[in-house]
């Protein structure tokens, strides 16, 4: 397996560990191949979001290393711009820029970071928004959109930088049930197109439809991993069985 994202022995502590600090990542190692879709599940506080955020360095590790392709994310003088062009991020709360239209949200980074011309960025942005089904919402502001539409716009915004991998941090947790499907459909289509994806989510439907591998984390460690069929049908660890009992 040719690893595209490589996490080696990642450790991250929040607060002072001697006074009730939390070890969010306690020696996590993980490899994601090019085109692979990895779903990370686990109870809240298990470190799954921290792992994701460390991959594009929204969070810095205490020790351990992370590589995306040949770029060392955790290098002291890492080229942050390059890392963030490598891996796009989609957030639970969308985080669309609320003072900009949907199209401006999508074209901002290509214009500022890639120095694309306004016309070229608009053309590309329009095409990407068509692709996520928002071709008729180009000039709308985020507050005028439903949650599902906002999250699709946020995915389009990440795609506009043509990332080599996409990180999804609980992309459907803030959505009403009837809007979850439209977002998952977009994500499934991306997976089918061969996008490398790390997804923190408990959407079992998505796991079965699109995930190549499911990773179960608890207390900052990877407890168990396998294909969706293996992990859901016959988990080996007690802790995994217990957790799956809650969400299945």
């Amino acid at each position: 397996m040719n690893a595209f994202i490589r996490v080696v022995d990642a450790v991250k502590t929040f607060g002072d560990p001697e006074r009730g600090g939390v070890r969010a990542l306690d020696g996590v190692s993980l490899e994601v191949a090019k085109g692979e879709v990895v779903l990370v599940i686990g109870p809240s506080g298990s470190g799954k979001s921290t792992l994701l955020r460390a991959v594009n360095r929204l969070e810095r590790l205490d020790s351990g290393g992370i590589w995306i392709g040949d770029d060392e994310v955790t290098a002291r003088r890492a080229d942050l711009r390059r890392i963030r062009e490598d891996a796009g991020m989609v957030f639970q709360s969308f985080n669309l820029f609320s003072h900009m239209s949907v199209l401006d949200n999508v074209t901002l980074a290509p214009r500022l970071v890639r120095k694309a011309s306004a016309a070229a960025a608009r053309e590309a942005g329009r095409a990407i928004l068509e692709r996520v089904g928002l071709g008729d919402k180009l000039e709308a502001y985020p507050r005028q959109l439903s949650g599902g539409q906002q999250q699709r716009a946020a995915i389009a915004r990440a795609l506009a930088m043509s990332p080599k991998a996409l990180l999804f941090d609980e992309p459907t947790s803030a959505l009403d049930p009837e809007m979850i499907k439209e977002v998952l459909d977009v994500m499934t289509a991306l997976a089918d197109d061969g996008m490398t994806m790390m997804v923190v989510s408990h959407e079992m439907g998505f796991a079965r439809a699109a995930a190549d591998r499911v990773v179960f984390m608890d207390r900052g460690r990877i407890v168990e991993q396998g294909t969706p069929e293996e992990l859901f049908a016959s988990p080996r660890e007690e802790r995994t069985k217990e957790f799956l009992g809650h969400i299945l």
Binding site: R84, S93, N95, F97, S98
Partner: peptide, 14 residues
């Protein structure tokens, strides 16, 4: 909102 700043950083903005 801090999320706005994170989103901008995640897109590669300085």
């Amino acid at each position: 909102d801090k999320g706005q700043i994170e989103a901008a950083h995640a897109l590669g903005l300085s």
